[in-house]
Design a protein around this nucleic acid. Structure first.
Length: 458
DNA sequence: TGTTCATGG
DNA sequence: TATCCATGAACA
């Protein structure tokens, strides 16, 4: 075995040993809380379903399906909306069917569909709690972490999956995370790498423009692109609509572009973020820009972009500028990396891992960045495990979510743990791997002693 | 078993 | 080459 493959093997070997120890420790769950909360959710659901079933909308639906009617069937809902009622689907699924996802149901603007969305959300929350309960042994869940299942050499988690517990939706996040606790007398701590995929991407393509963004804390890539997309003269993060536009730019243009999306789809996602459907491009539509009910559509129209078609053209221009001027070195790397794959039939990561077999242009350029970013996290996880063992600490590693580490910390060890995590991530890691050419940064979050994993009120 | 939806990075 | 990687539930 080559030296590089040997190093890759070594990382997985040490990694899975450290992860298996975390699995053994696990996460304490509050079963009383889960039971009472599931009961509450059940009651709420019964009420919501009852009121939904009393609507004309549902009675009409019943009419189409008779005894077989099932309000949980998306197939029935799809048929009812797009065939019986002959509505135009706001969005299609991958296979060209009318979509019934949250965005589509909201866009159809039928009150009963909002009830359905609410029901779906509560069911989802209940589902997480029930999975925690099902997997608990003596009041502790032991999420599994795999290193052998993901084709990019990332990890995955199951039984239960600790890597997709709600966090973006504050309501769902709070309910689900209030079920999870550290060992008695201990506190949870979470360390995140800040935008690790951007940093590791730079280590591969070495685009000078992106290096500038990473090295200058005052610069803001998403704000700069946001100004272009939404034709803003100045950008002010403290204005709430600007911060939504920045988020839309980040999640609807910049990251999708990095991963290989193209302008037509980006236009669609951007419009989802600013709540401006293709069919409603007129004054007074879309998200509000200020309190005088001046909307994003008003703004764009005032700048001459008075249709979806023109907005798409505008985004096409921005895309061209994005790759031809702003990040041209990144684009050239993508081409070189693709050609290297065509020549050799495989791609190799800095960490020694190889991906073989048929891959698309996007795959070839994304896998190394995704995999290598996780390997940075895994390396820190392994070293932290060694330090805990060597120093006979009481703190335990209990999980990992791709770019973050979760620990169950003894309060007296808190400051030492934080110091070591920072040293490992920001100093020892970049000196261990010399291909790391930009500074790495982490964020460490502390939870109260005996507090839950909920950010709000633990 | 494949599709769709929802959750995370 | 037209958004990358997952898990899991419900349905058909």
């Amino acid at each position: 075995m080559s030296n590089k493959l040997m190093q890759a093997y070594q990382l997985l070997h040490e990694g899975i040993l450290a992860l298996s120890k975390a699995e053994e420790v696990g996460f304490r769950v509050d079963l009383d809380y889960i039971n009472t909360t599931v009961d509450k959710l059940d009651n709420d659901l019964i009420q919501l379903e009852k009121s939904f079933k009393e609507t004309k909308f549902y009675k009409h639906w019943c009419h189409s399906f008779g005894r077989q009617v099932n309000m949980n069937s998306d197939t029935q809902l799809r048929y009812f909306l797009y065939h019986v009622k002959r509505l135009k689907p706001p969005k299609l699924t991958e296979n060209g069917e009318g979509s019934t996802d949250e965005y589509s149901l909201k866009a159809l603007n039928i009150p009963e569909l909002n009830q359905l969305v609410k029901i779906r959300k509560l069911k989802k929350i209940k589902d997480y709690l029930e999975r925690f309960k099902r997997e608990a042994v003596d009041g502790i869940i032991h999420p599994i972490f795999n290193l052998h299942l993901v084709k990019t050499y990332r990890s995955s988690s199951s039984n239960p999956n600790l890597q997709n517990v709600p966090s973006k939706d504050a309501f769902a996040s709070d309910i689900c995370r209030k079920a999870l606790y550290p060992r008695k007398g201990h506190m949870l701590m979470e360390m995140d790498f800040k935008s690790i995929e951007v940093s590791i991407g730079v280590c591969y393509h070495k685009d000078p423009e992106m290096i500038k963004y990473l090295k200058n804390p005052k610069s803001d890539m998403h704000a700069d692109v946001s100004k272009e997309i939404f034709l803003l003269d100045k950008f002010d993060k403290s204005i709430s609509s600007h911060s939504i536009l920045r988020k839309a730019t980040k999640n609807g243009f910049v990251f999708p572009q990095f991963y290989g999306d193209y302008y037509k789809n980006c236009t669609k996602i951007l419009c989802e973020w600013i709540k401006l459907p293709q069919s409603k491009w007129q004054r007074g539509e879309g998200m509000e820009l200020d309190t005088k009910s001046f909307t994003i559509a008003d703004h764009l129209i005032s700048k001459g972009i008075n249709s979806y078609f023109l907005f798409e053209k505008h985004i096409e221009k921005i895309e061209r500028n994005f790759w031809e001027n702003r990040f041209s070195v990144y684009r050239e790397w993508k081409e070189r990396n693709w050609n290297l794959y065509l020549k050799r039939g495989y791609i190799e990561f800095y960490t020694g891992f190889r991906c073989n077999g048929p891959m698309s242009f996007n795959d070839v350029n994304n896998y190394p960045i995704q995999g290598t970013s996780f390997h940075c996290l895994l390396w820190v996880f392994i070293q932290m495990d060694k330090i805990i063992t060597e120093n006979h600490l009481d703190t335990r590693l209990i999980g990992q979510i791709h770019d973050s580490i979760i620990l169950d910390v003894r309060p007296e060890e808190k400051d030492y743990i934080k110091k070591v995590l920072r040293e490992l991530s920001c100093e020892r890691l970049p000196s261990h791997w010399d291909w790391i050419i930009v500074p790495l940064d982490v964020e460490i979050q502390e939870f109260p002693i005996d507090g839950s994993w909920s950010v709000k009120n633990s």
